[in-house]
């Protein structure tokens, strides 16, 4: 059976969704045996999807900086099917809390004013992404094909969605597999 290549990344998020992905436990092996190949993922510690592209791209996390925007666009180009997993990727999620403040307020509070900060400094390195005025859901930047909401999504939801896609079907999440919290 031909390999089904998956690349995943996390953007503005907590990594919880990838923890849920790992929570599939032995079913990861089952997926690999069924032909799945995990290429670049935070788990395999490879940053860039292979040149030739992948079948399925998975994004955890919202779009919070210009780098996230770039990365989402890049993965979109490199994959056939793009899945947004977790509330941050799907809706914007918890990280949209900062949308109620200006960037300056957020940076000042985060780097200079927290109770435990002494002589803080707002980082300026060019390698860091610049905060966008507002955090956005992935679908606000690139076309998303499937959504697996949840904070984090249950491992069962991720497994079911992948299994359905592998079987050539369109996943529909219902019941306990569809949750927002």
């Amino acid at each position: 059976m031909a390999k089904v290549k998956i690349a995943s990344t996390w953007l503005e998020a907590c990594s919880g969704c990838h923890m849920s992905l790992l929570d599939m436990d032995e079913r990861i092996v089952e997926l690999i045996q069924a032909g799945v190949e995990f290429t670049s993922t935070p788990i395999t510690d490879l940053k860039h999807p292979p040149e030739e592209g992948v079948d399925i791209g998975i994004i955890e996390g919202a779009i919070g900086t210009d780098l996230h925007e770039e990365e989402a666009k890049h993965l979109r180009k490199k994959c056939k099917i793009l899945i947004a997993i977790g509330d941050c990727a799907v809706f914007g999620g918890i990280v949209t809390m900062r949308n109620y403040f200006s960037r300056e307020e957020v940076l000042t509070r985060g780097y200079l004013e927290t109770e435990s900060t002494k002589d803080g400094k707002i980082p300026t390195s060019d390698e860091l992404g610049k905060l966008l005025p507002k955090v956005k859901a992935v679908k606000d930047i690139v076309k998303v094909d499937f959504y697996i909401p949840g904070c984090p999504p249950p491992a069962d939801s991720i497994y079911t969605a992948l299994k359905e896609l592998l079987g050539g079907r369109v996943p529909v999440l219902k019941g306990d597999l569809l949750k927002y919290d």
């Binding site: 947004a84 914007g92 507002k134 859901a137 679908k139 959504y147 697996i148 909401p149 999440l173 219902k174």
Partner: peptide, 11 residues
């Protein structure tokens, strides 16, 4: 089966 927001919230 609302699995994403069709319209971006107006924040």
């Amino acid at each position: 089966g609302i699995d994403h927001f069709a319209f971006s919230p107006y924040q």
